[in-house]
Design a protein around this nucleic acid. Sequence first.
DNA 1: CCCCAATAGTTAGGTACCTAAGTACAAATA
DNA 2: TATTTGTACTTAGGTACCTAACTATTGGGG
Lengths: 180, 180
Amino acid sequence: MRRHITFMTQHPETGPAAPSIEQVRRQIARYGLSADPQAILVAARLMTAGARLGQAGEVHFGRFGLSTGRYRLLADLEDHGGEKSPSQLAATLGVSRATVTGLVDGLEREGLVVRRPSAEDGRGNVVILTARGADRLRELAPEHFARMQSLVGGLSVEERATFLDLLARVVAGIDALAED
Amino acid sequence: MRRHITFMTQHPETGPAAPSIEQVRRQIARYGLSADPQAILVAARLMTAGARLGQAGEVHFGRFGLSTGRYRLLADLEDHGGEKSPSQLAATLGVSRATVTGLVDGLEREGLVVRRPSAEDGRGNVVILTARGADRLRELAPEHFARMQSLVGGLSVEERATFLDLLARVVAGIDALAED
DNA sequence: CCCCAATAGTTAGGTACCTAAGTACAAATA
DNA sequence: TATTTGTACTTAGGTACCTAACTATTGGGG
């Protein structure tokens, strides 16, 4: 039971080419810098992997008539009893309130959530998961979790633990990328 | 010497909340599935990290009046002698030709590249890196590589090697997410 | 020699993000 | 009590992606 999805149905086949260590060395040399090629390579590969993963995620969720952002909103909503304000959603999803507005717009068009004015706060809305929305989540769950699991299926339990640890430490360093 | 950048100048402060193992367990239980919570957690964290890294990357490149996509195009161009067709760029960057059209549009507006009709192929263009474009790359290189390096600065050389290996194996499994 | 399929690039429409500005309402303060 | 400050959400405009459709040109097969 596939829906009218007009995006992300073709396999792009491509995916960003992972940079090679030689390419990195060449770049560093070109500007006469003293950076560690291995470190740069790891960072570059991680960014490439992140982009590829993001694109694959869109294809994945597209199969269910959703996008990554819409799925995350729906799942977060269900995790919170099916009712939450846009501001709360923005905070836990880590996106701006404007983005939540857009996501809810789309989900509401599809009938997966509804907006109701907040009882306590005259300024606020409450986004409510509909039965249709809950159905959609239930429907995609088996395939979703199976695919997520197969994503890291090539790693042993110990390797996954190691990966989780290393990943967390890199994530902690992400702010170094953007800090003033 | 910062440029007229109107996007991504505020620190969003937020960043997607990393899912907890309990949250994952709850989701799996809700649908009566038998997925391995640890595996799901790793996959979810990786997707979150990818998204965060992508956003941080935009902030990073925004400091130089560029975006991740535009920087990658510029760098690839320089790596290739400063001249390449849009199709070739699309292939190595792993994006669609339509996306390259948009990226080149922006870069051409800024005077960092120019489009010239191809001599061999009447259908084709050649995108050429301008002196201004090369200057921009040279200008941002020190800060760029320093930040990239500090991104993985929390990892030892051995850990980085391990991370690179594990990452490659996960990337190899990415297609499992989107395959038919 | 001509036609037709394949390719190069652009355009149109859609999605997710962002920032900044605008509107409505709440809460704190003078 | 009136004003000011802060918060909630939306809207406007911008960027990067995507697919699908369209134009132009190339190149192979009848």
